[in-house]
Computed example of a mutant assay.
Amino acid sequence: DLSDNNLSGGISSELMSLTSLVSFVAQRNALDEALPLVFSPNLRDFNVRENAIPGRISEFLGMHPNLEQIDLTTNALTGPLPNFATNSPVSVFGVSFNSLTGTIPVSITSAPNLAVFHAGNNSLQGTIPSFAGNNGSMTRLELFGLPGLEGNVNSVFNSTDLFPSLQHLELSTNDMTGSIATTVGQFTSLTYLSLHGNAFAGSIPSELGVLTNLATLNINSNAFTGSLPSEVGSLTNLVSLLACPNQLRGSLPPELGNLSTSLQRLFLCSNQFTGTIPSEVGLLEGL
């Protein structure tokens, strides 16, 4: 582990050729040369996040027979994402905060063991490809800050059988459309759901009330309509409810008072709510 130093330059091919090397971690340094083209055949963990590494990601990283965790977050990487092998062992793949271009290969989203995938704040575009090859291991999906990422959000919400363990879903500040399907109620492991800064519309389904593990619900800066369903009062672990601006209307549900022991942030500004403020809101001691 070479983390948290001031190392610069590159990663030598001699080092990466060591057959006994299983883990290479050099996060939070100043590495500023392109990634090596050779990787130890037994390497399982490659973490160089928070450096200044330029250039492209080698296709061999995605084809490596043993690599399980790849973290390239916060560098200066360019070019397309690599393709993954059909039976790739990768479980964690992080490339957020780079300058990557092109589309997201279906070979990545269909990787059978992929549990964590984040690729936010790049210049990726196109639509979210199918996750059909994933064996249901996905727990964290973060695709945010991708203004070229289009498509309907229900490509995710209508794939509940592919995401039985999903806990963290971040699809913020993209160019996505659609509404929240009622099937969202089947994502019972979700603790974090952020859809802010897209073009989502339609009503907020009452089925959200089934997600009792949810701690953050962020639908800021969309075009949601209808009322705030009373079922939000069932989200007794909810810490943040963020829903402004939208086009929500009607009265505020008194069931918000059920969140007295959990809720710390309630943002409902710039909507079209009417009526009086329910007295139950006064029970929200954490605000």
Rank of each mutant, 00 (worst) to 15 (best):
L2S: 07
D4M: 15
N6L: 12
S8T: 14
G9Q: 11
G10P: 09
G10Y: 00
S12E: 06
T19D: 05
N29W: 02
A30P: 01
D32F: 06
L37Y: 04
V38I: 15
S40N: 03
R44E: 05
D45C: 07
N47I: 15
R49K: 14
I53T: 09
P54C: 09
G55A: 11
I57P: 02
L61V: 06
G62T: 09
P65K: 06
P65A: 06
D71W: 01
T73G: 09
T74G: 09
A76V: 08
L77F: 14
A85M: 06
V90D: 13
V90I: 15
S91N: 05
V92R: 12
V92D: 13
P105W: 07
N121S: 05
Q125P: 10
Q125R: 12
F131M: 08
N135T: 12
G136I: 05
L141I: 09
L143G: 00
F144V: 02
G145L: 07
L149F: 00
N152P: 07
N154F: 01
S155F: 08
S155Y: 07
F157R: 06
F157C: 06
N158I: 07
S159V: 02
F163E: 09
S165N: 15
L166G: 00
Q167P: 00
H168L: 14
S172K: 13
N174F: 01
T182G: 10
G185M: 01
G185W: 00
F187R: 00
F187C: 11
T188I: 13
S194R: 03
S203Q: 10
S203E: 13
E207Q: 15
L208G: 02
L208E: 00
V210N: 11
A215N: 13
L217A: 06
S221Q: 12
N222M: 05
A223L: 13
F224N: 08
T225H: 02
P229H: 12
S230V: 14
S230L: 15
V232S: 04
V232R: 02
S234R: 14
L235D: 01
N237R: 06
S240V: 07
S240H: 13
R249A: 15
G250L: 08
L252P: 04
P253R: 00
L256R: 02
Q264R: 15
Q264F: 08
S270N: 15
N271A: 11
V281H: 06
V281A: 12
E285Q: 13
L287K: 09
